[in-house]
Structures are given as C-alpha cells and as structure tokens.
Design a binder for these strands. Sequence first.
DNA 1: GTCATATAGTTGTATAGCTAATCAAATGGA
DNA 2: TCCATTTGATTAGCTATACAACTATATGAC
Lengths: 138, 138
Amino acid sequence: MFDRCIYFNTLALARQLERVWTEAFKPFDLTPPQGFMLRAVLAKPGLLQSELADELKIARATATRGLDGLEAKGLIERRPTKTDKRERGIAPTKEALALHDKLNAASGAVTDRLKGIFGETVFLGFVEQAKAVASKLE
Amino acid sequence: MFDRCIYFNTLALARQLERVWTEAFKPFDLTPPQGFMLRAVLAKPGLLQSELADELKIARATATRGLDGLEAKGLIERRPTKTDKRERGIAPTKEALALHDKLNAASGAVTDRLKGIFGETVFLGFVEQAKAVASKLE
DNA sequence: GTCATATAGTTGTATAGCTAATCAAATGGA
DNA sequence: TCCATTTGATTAGCTATACAACTATATGAC
C-alpha cells in the first residue's frame, strides 16, 4: 500500500534486519542496540557519552538508558574525566573485553551472510545510497 | 564507525525520515505510525486487524495497540464481522473521513519534498532497492 | 457430536527511541 | 566576583515495537 514510500519501506527493512541481528547477538545475551553500543565502546574506549550518542546517531537520553543496561550487565563503566566533572568517559570492563573477538566475529559473519543473500554489489551500493540519502537530510 | 553496516545505516535513515513525517503529521495530532495506520484504514476500510498488520508489516499485537490509540482519538471503529465472531473489521469514523483529503495532500507533499531533496531518480531507485533487499530476507 | 487443534485478537512484559524538563558544573561578561 | 548562560548527563513521561501467554471462537477428524 505504501509501495513508493521511502520512510515506510526503509523502516520495514530496518525491522527485518533487526531480526537477523537479534539472532546473531542472542548468544551474548545482547539485543541489537546493546550489541552495537558495546561494539562502539570496545572500538573506541573512553568516549564521552555525548560522543557515543553521536557515533550511534541516537539522542543523548537514549545513550544514558542504553549505558544503564550495559552497566547493569557489568559490561561497561562510567568514569569521571579529570577535566570536567560533568563528563563521563565510557570504558569496557574486562568481561566486555573478553567478548570483543567473539562479538566481532559474530558481527562479521552476519554481514558476510547478508552480502551473500543480497549480492555484494547490491549490499555495498545500498549502504552507500542510504548514507548519501541520510546526509542530504541533515 | 558502522559505516558499512546495512542495519545500522538503514535504521539511522529510518529515524531521520521519521522526523520529517513527524512534522508533516503534527497538524493532525498524529505520530507517523498513527498517520500511516490511519491512511491504511482510509485506503482500505473494512480490513481485518490481521490484514492491517500485514499491510503495515507490524506484529498483530502492535496493530492492537495502534488501533487502541486511534480508537481513543475517535478516528476508527472496530466492527465485528458477520461470519466469524473472533474477527474485527476496521472502519474509519466520519471524523477520520473528514481528514482523508488533507492527510493525503500532506503525505503527497512530504514525498514530493523528499523527491526534490534526493532527486527523483535516486528516490525511486532507493525505494525499489529497499523492497528488493527486504524481499530477499523473507 | 465431541474434543483436539488452529486462529483472531488481546494482554503482560520488556526494550528502544524521542522531547522536554531538570540538575550540576563550567564559562564568560560586567 | 557574581550572576546569567551554556553544556553534559539524567530523569520523566510518552509512543512503538516485539514475543509469549492467554481468551474466545472456529474447524476438522473421528
């Protein structure tokens, strides 16, 4: 019905893809947003919460909630910075560091699988277009 | 950071597009999911809830919640069908019918604006690709 | 005709996202 | 120095989404 609607179709696709990632992160007991947040923390330890929110393209308040969840699972720590008492840098715990390689491997496997399903050219082209379209909306 | 991730970029784009539609539906006091659900009801009055869920590509439980909201606003009615006492057909109220043209006009205006921003060729190509990719995941 | 199974819809419970409001700390102008 | 403004993070309150469990009804095998 909304066959020509970019919002409807983009959102529906995102929900389908979320299901794939839900499976992939299930062994780690992480939802996709949690998994991506943790991957970001592992890739760039020490980021401020606001910087993390920017990386993940979510609102700061959403980052607060997500980090609460990861903190409750013992996967991240908030550390006050030395220069500004309002800021908190985010560091992975050693439990999180122990997951790093497996999490990367599982993520790579999903991407490879999706590339296989869609074809690598289509996959890469689509991602580029999504970014190009998004950048025109800013 | 997740520059090559189809899920991350698709979801981020969907959230950006949602902001555009949020503005467009604000005059009707509808969120984007509510607006799209109402448009579906107006376009195909009498659909069963399960059929509506399929059209919108959401779970049945989500359709229940969304319809609760539209019903509370006096925009739709659930009507028992004659043949099966479990089923409910969804009909727009006359308040909703009164919005039909304006809602369509506002929706068309958003799509035209986005086509202008992205370029019509890119817009249509992207939507087609999103559908093609989604169909390979089913 | 009866009972097991399937189906339509709802409810319970959880996560994720947003905006607006708030709190606390930093900054800067006078 | 002091107060107004800005900024990082949190909290409050809301919507949307999903899955699983449930209720009520329908269907079909016998």
